[in-house]
Amino acid sequence: MEINSKLKRTAVDALLTALSLIIFILEAQIPSPVPVPGIKLGLANIITLVAVSLIGKRDAGIILLLRIILGSVFAGTPVSFIYSMAGGICCYLVICLFYRFLNGNRLWALSVFGAAAHNLGQLVVASFIMGSTAVFWYIPALLLSAIITGTFTGLCACFTINRIKKGVIRK
């Protein structure tokens, strides 16, 4: 997927932002199956992984940032914005850092590391907001959930990328 013109780039970024926003808002309606704060599927991360793989880290960062801001406006609170931002930045940094080792069919592992960074980042913010270190008891639960949901979203991203590369979606 070559993006030559500025216009095309803007359109693709806008499209992916809109997609991730829809996924994010839909996912927010699903009640959590486990009584641990912070556990969720993280489906919007599929878009981040697709964007990093197909259009580059810079645009993926812009899409993620826009999605977090817009997502908090439409389906969040000021506090949830802080959590999303912390998780999003940690996840993005880890994805950028490890992308060159874990691209292609290793993307599921990149997704797991991103999800783990997201959850741990949120946990650090939670401990600041709560003024307590008790939240760190959730580390094993959150890491386990990051492994499961990260693998799932990572595989979703792999399948999506392969389809786009084959030109199924381009037309």
Partner: peptide, 9 residues
């Protein structure tokens, strides 16, 4: 492990 209510801290 503790019970934590994040929204109400």
């Amino acid at each position: 492990h503790p019970i934590i209510c994040l929204p109400n801290r």
